[in-house]
Design a protein around this nucleic acid. Structure first.
Length: 467
RNA sequence: GGUCCCAUCGUCUAGUGGCCUAGGACAUCGGCCUCUCACGCCGAAAACACGGGUUCGAGUCCCGUUGGGAUCACCA
């Protein structure tokens, strides 16, 4: 049995977007699932648009998602001799020919054809002119004019194309660079790709590529065209639909597991299961369960998954991940283990790392500024006395465990005949400066007696100044 | 416009001719829990695009219509 080879072949003209990430992931999962080889290949034959920054951005994006490759990255720009040898072979065998039609002229003919409602395909002007190679000539593939080409697709089934619909595509530009359709085929042949998994926007290219395989006498790989990802308005996903760069989600505080899980479930399913670990994905992924129709990118569901994975993640790992976000707020953490102890109090209430970091400042600042509106609402005249008593109560506690405090407060409230509800918000304001926070007992446990006492004393002083 | 693909709740989907009174999840709405905000739990509303066939029986098969998408480059 032949070992499975898949590949992800982005063109380095921009960042890694979610659609690309998903096709990369499908290829990766399929290879991992079957113990095959996953290859990364950079399609940079479009010299004008390809950049090194984009290449790096794509590598970074894959790295963040944890999609690793076994071979590459290969660069098409470094494989020019290979393409050239195949082109020479095709030309010498009469299966390709030089063409000297001017681009502007072709463009004009194409537009005219479109305007008249005819097929805008190459008219074969240079097909039999036996033109010699020149400075402005391109190489065209001599495609069959009759018959049909069938694409057997693992997700779409069989699709029949009339060869008459296809035209003689350019396989080498006048500057010597191969074109996409040709370079892909040559690379997939030489890298022994067995399964081509890509977006279904390539389905129409496939018959041309199959013709090339046949002309070269090479076996045709399996194809799997996965549906595209659309925006909320059903048009192709783009910036105006929100963030589309995978790394933008990293910056917004998303976890890679969430992105991976979300992207996998968009267009693929395994019964009713929604949550998949990386290992489960590898174990359960199959092309048969990839759907046929396009899917709409749903940020809400991604956010929900992110919240889920934040709840699940190990606090120590989250501490490391949240560090840069805290720094963005000007908070420098000296004691990471203290941070790690604070993390669990925010886990169930944070959908992103950004949100988590946003709920943490009070853990690191003693000089808190109380919310203006809350002062008026909760710092009522009777509060000062109560807070003084609470301070004494807390000072008397041998341990600062949440259960002890909870018990102490229960006793205290019963003795003084006051509802805990009445003192919760003022106390929260004194300890966190805000009206929204993790539970008081868990938060005090993390803060520890020293900070709590200090803040209470400061709060009482503030209350005294109000009178 | 030609060609190609697609079509189950708002969204992602389960469903492979009888298990469908169409299931799950996100979002929405209501309730419970509660020291705030969340989490969690319970519940509600919400779909087989339409029209013809085939069949004892169709969300499931076929055809058409409609709608959406892709593609027609010396881009990939």
């Amino acid at each position: 049995m032949v070992e499975i080879h898949t590949r992800f072949s982005p063109s380095p003209t921009g960042y890694l977007h979610v659609g690309g990430a998903r096709t990369a992931m499908f290829n990766w999962l399929f290879a991992r699932r079957h113990g095959g080889t996953f290859i990364l290949r950079i399609e940079d034959t479009d010299v004008a648009r390809s950049t090194e920054e984009a290449t790096q951005a794509i590598l970074d994006g894959l790295g963040w998602l944890g999609i690793d490759w076994d071979e590459g990255p290969y660069f098409q720009s470094q494989r020019l001799e290979i393409y050239q040898s195949y082109i020479d072979r095709l030309v010498s065998e009469g299966k390709a020919y030089y063409c000297s039609c001017a681009p502007e002229e072709l463009d004009a003919r194409r537009k005219a054809a479109m305007a008249e409602g005819r097929k805008p395909k190459y008219d074969g002007a240079c097909r039999n002119r036996d033109i010699e190679k020149g400075p402005d000539t391109v190489v065209r593939f001599r495609a069959p004019e009759h018959g049909t080409t069938v694409v057997h697709d693992l997700v779409k089934g069989a699709t029949v194309f009339e060869n008459a619909e296809l035209d003689d595509l350019i396989i080498q530009r006048s500057d010597g660079m191969p074109t996409y359709n040709f370079a892909v085929v040559i690379d997939d042949i030489s890298m022994e790709i067995t399964h081509v998994i890509r977006g279904d926007d390539h389905l129409n290219n496939t018959p041309r590529q199959i013709l090339l395989y046949e002309a070269l006498g090479c076996p045709v790989p399996e194809f799997a065209h996965v549906p595209m990802i659309l925006g909320a308005d059903r048009s192709r996903l783009s910036k105006r639909h929100g963030a589309t760069s995978v790394l933008a989600y990293k910056e917004m505080g998303y976890l890679p597991q969430a992105m991976l899980n979300y992207l996998a479930r968009l267009g693929w399913s395994h019964g009713d299961q929604e949550i998949f670990s990386r290992e489960e994905l590898i174990e359960k992924f199959s092309l048969e369960n990839v759907g046929k129709s396009a899917g709409i990118f749903n940020p809400d569901k991604l956010l929900w998954l992110n919240a889920h994975y934040i709840k699940e993640e190990d606090p120590n790992k989250l501490a490391q991940l949240v560090l840069p976000f805290l720094e963005q707020q000007g908070i420098k953490v000296e004691d990471v283990s203290y941070l790690a102890r604070a993390i669990p109090t925010l886990q169930p209430r944070s959908k992103t790392l950004v949100e988590m970091a946003g709920g943490m400042p009070f853990y690191f600042k003693d000089e808190l500024e109380y919310e203006e509106k809350a002062i008026q609402k909760f710092f009522t005249p009777d509060i000062k006395g109560i807070m003084q008593q609470i301070l004494e109560e807390l000072k008397g506690l041998p341990f600062f465990r949440r259960e002890d405090m909870e018990a102490a407060f229960e006793r205290f409230c019963a003795e003084k005949d006051i509802k805990f509800k009445k003192i919760a918000q003022p106390l929260r304001l004194i300890l966190t400066g805000k009206t929204v926070s993790p539970g008081l007992f868990e938060l005090m446990e993390v803060l520890g007696p020293e900070r709590v006492v200090k803040r209470l004393e400061r709060g009482i002083k503030y209350l005294a100044s109000m009178a």
